[in-house]
Write a protein that binds this DNA or RNA. Structure first.
Length: 702
DNA sequence: GAGCACTGC
């Protein structure tokens, strides 16, 4: 490691007063939990403190962030405070962009990037300190990292320090997870926010928000208003109604007003409007989704209106289906929303629910992502790490996902050849884990490489992982239809093929952003899929067999029916297969559970001359809205389906969990226990887990 | 013939 010669000029932040306390705790313990409220400076200062105290002498300090923008902006800030340029002593690494060098001592990175690094370098030797920042957000990746860190500190007890930092995280719970490590509290610099509750839950929260907003506008001092809604539809409704009501107010009775929507699917140029300073003598109303809760910070907000709901996507492992539900927020979320009013001066938060509901009905914290999502990708990742104790269901999670969810993941991975019937990762599975994709798409790529249609499959995988959506301009419905007709239609084979054709057309237009807008496509999504495709090409060149032809324009004419590509998709989506009913166009899923589903109306797939849809299709996902739908489907042939049916017959969850040698994992675990008997708590935990394992085995084998 | 919150490798 190069020697350190950074100037040290810490700004005065609450955390600075706790410097000695922090350093003492880190010195004496492998893991320390730091609870720092908003404005405590933990994200920018912790790394600098440890750097000053010599922790960069034998390695780099890594600080993970759940979001890319945060990794970039915080690292820039730190570089500025230390008077160095980014990429030198201070750098960041996010997908598609690595701004670090051999000189880098403080490295900000997304949690996903750190997980990828740990794949090729499980001990993460280059780091002397790993800080998991914003752990309270409980992103899927952070949760997996928490489990990995618990292991890592045992293997690197002498030379690794781990800090878990968060705003409101239940410190005791994490401390318990890490064998009772110390918890430090750092106060923040947020201003007080007064909270007002409704006496009842409103029957119509749009109307209720409207009245509150007008009330503020007429009676309150200047200051912007942030209104939390659940989705785009509600926001649009709210914006137009609010504008109307403000217009109807008596002339000169109050100041000017500007109403702005804010949500993720807004084009960037419209999102930016929110960050422009307000015109003088004008109150802004920002009607936003959850983006304004953590991802985007709007300056000037003094009033918050909180409807108490959020739209949440959840996965049901017993049906394999996603649903998007409006659910009550948690107390942590409610407080986070309220905190948005106190960033520049004391504020007010209007909660459109009674305090009894906040106290009794709201969950303490939001259900962590790991319990709301399909785990196939994460389980494959963990399997690829070759952890010594083999049963993935015993992985030490802070909040374990359900057994059902983990078993669902094992079944899915088995059906696409990532693990064998004994639950062991296969060679195919190892390759899949290298690719930053959903397991189905990575399996498709590997099969495509065998079949000689890699270039097309790369495009499909890239476009699908960018999830481009055809932009919706409801007011210009007719025009939209006209434009969409000019786009390729998948040649009757479905949405995957259409997406491929769209990307190829864009490629032929030399990736012109204007081509996207002309065809009513989101340029942002298309650009992202192009970046993903490049990244995938680079990775696959290292692992592909034989010569690879990766140009997007190639490979079109040789296979007019896209047979190779569709076959590769059939193998990759072997866990997501559906068969049409005999007499109508409904489908049932083919797998270890059967669901009645339909092709989503947005699909390009159309019936034959008799109006019949293909007998077999694979689908990208099941989403339960008004009914269960398959989104993004591709027609496949019966002959390709047979191997999947065969695998289904052999599927045995007991074997997937415990493998052929059921006692091997236990023996390994006992061996591990005995080598850690100096840590009594770990020993007890391991024995309890072993006991549990034997019990499970006994129960399931009966 | 329906309608999608937010992240990330």
């Amino acid at each position: 490691m190069p020697s350190t010669s950074l100037p040290a000029t810490p700004p005065v932040l609450p955390i600075s007063e706790h410097e000695d306390e922090i350093v003492a705790a880190v010195e004496a313990n492998p893991v320390v939990v730091v609870i720092g409220e908003t404005g405590s400076g933990k994200s920018t200062q912790l790394s600098q403190i440890l750097h000053r105290r010599g922790y960069t002498r034998r390695g780099t300090i890594a600080i993970t962030q759940p979001r890319r923008v945060a990794a970039v902006s915080v690292s820039r800030r730190v570089a500025q405070e230390l008077g160095v340029s980014i990429g030198e002593e201070v750098g960041y690494a996010i997908r598609f962009e690595d701004r670090t060098s051999e000189k880098t001592l403080i490295k900000y990175l997304t949690d996903g990037v750190l997980l990828r690094e740990s794949l090729s370098n499980p001990e993460l030797k280059q780091y002397s300190v790993i800080i998991l920042d914003e752990a309270h957000e409980r992103s899927l990746n952070t949760d997996i990292l928490l489990g990995l860190m618990k292991r890592l500190i045992k293997d690197r007890a002498s030379d690794l320090k781990v800090l878990i930092t968060s705003a409101t995280l239940d410190g005791l719970k994490v401390s318990k997870f890490f064998s009772g490590c110390p918890v430090l509290n750092i106060p923040g610099t947020i201003f007080p926010v007064e909270k007002f509750y409704s006496t009842d839950r409103p029957t119509n929260y749009i109307e209720s928000s409207l009245r509150t907003a007008i009330d503020i506008h007429v009676k309150e001092v200047p200051g912007d208003v942030l209104i939390f809604m659940t989705g785009k539809d509600d926001i649009d409704k709210m914006v137009s109604k609010l504008e109307e009501r403000i217009q109807n107010l008596e002339e000169g009775s109050c100041m000017d007003a500007l109403v702005l929507p804010l949500h993720g699917s807004l084009p960037p140029e419209q999102q930016v409007r929110v960050f422009a300073p307000a015109p003088p003598e004008c109150r802004r109303f920002i009607v936003a989704t959850n983006v304004a809760e953590t991802s985007l910070t709007v300056d000037g907000v003094v009033f918050v209106i909180d409807c108490g709901y959020v739209k949440q996507r959840q996965y049901n492992p017993s049906t394999g289906m996603y649903s998007l539900d409006v659910v009550q927020i948690s107390r942590v979320q409610a407080d986070q929303r309220a905190g948005r009013a106190g960033r520049t001066r004391p504020g007010k938060c209007y909660r459109l629910y009674p305090s009894s509901i906040y106290q009794k009905e709201f969950l303490e914290a939001t259900i962590p992502e790991i319990q709301r999502t399909s785990l196939a990708g994460s389980v494959l990742y963990l399997k690829s790490l070759n952890l010594p104790d083999i049963d993935i269901l015993m992985f030490d999670f802070l909040d374990p996902p359900s057994r059902e969810s983990l078993e669902d993941a094992l079944r899915q991975l088995y059906l696409i050849d990532a693990i064998d019937e004994n639950g062991q990762i296969t060679d195919v599975g190892r390759l899949m884990a290298e690719l930053p994709l959903d397991p189905s798409l990575s399996r498709t790529l590997i099969e495509a490489n065998e079949l000689g249609c890699l270039s097309q499959a790369l495009t499909v995988a890239a476009v699908l992982s960018a999830e481009i959506t055809l932009r919706q301009t409801r007011s210009k419905e007719i025009e939209r239809k006209r434009k969409r007709r000019e786009l390729p239609d998948g040649s009757g084979w479905g949405d995957h093929i259409q997406l491929l054709q769209i990307f190829e057309s864009w490629d032929q237009a030399d990736y012109d952003p204007k081509w996207c807008s002309d065809h009513d496509l989101q340029a942002r999504g298309m650009k992202f899929s192009k970046d993903v495709r490049n990244q995938l090409s680079q990775i696959i060149q290292k692992i592909a067999k034989g010569p690879t032809d990766l140009q997007a324009r190639r490979g079109r004419k040789s296979d007019p029916d896209y047979r190779k590509l569709r076959k590769a998709l059939c193998v990759g989506y072997g866990n997501q297969l559906a068969e049409r009913m005999l007499h109508h166009n409904g489908y049932h899923t083919v797998g270890y559970r059967t669901q009645l589903v339909q092709v989503h109306p947005s699909s390009v797939l159309e019936g034959d001359e008799y109006g019949k849809l293909p007998v077999y299709v694979v689908y990208h996902e099941l989403i339960n809205t008004t009914r269960p739908f398959m989104r993004n489907v591709c027609a496949v042939e019966q002959a390709w389906v047979k191997p999947i049916l065969k695998k289904l017959e052999k599927l045995n969850i007991k074997k997937l969990r415990y493998g052929g040698h059921v006692f091997k994992p236990m023996i390994v675990q006992v061996a591990r226990c005995t080598s850690y008997t100096n840590n009594l708590e770990y020993f007890i935990t391991a024995v309890v887990q072993l006991h549990q394992q034997i019990l499970n085995l006994w129960v399931t084998s009966k």
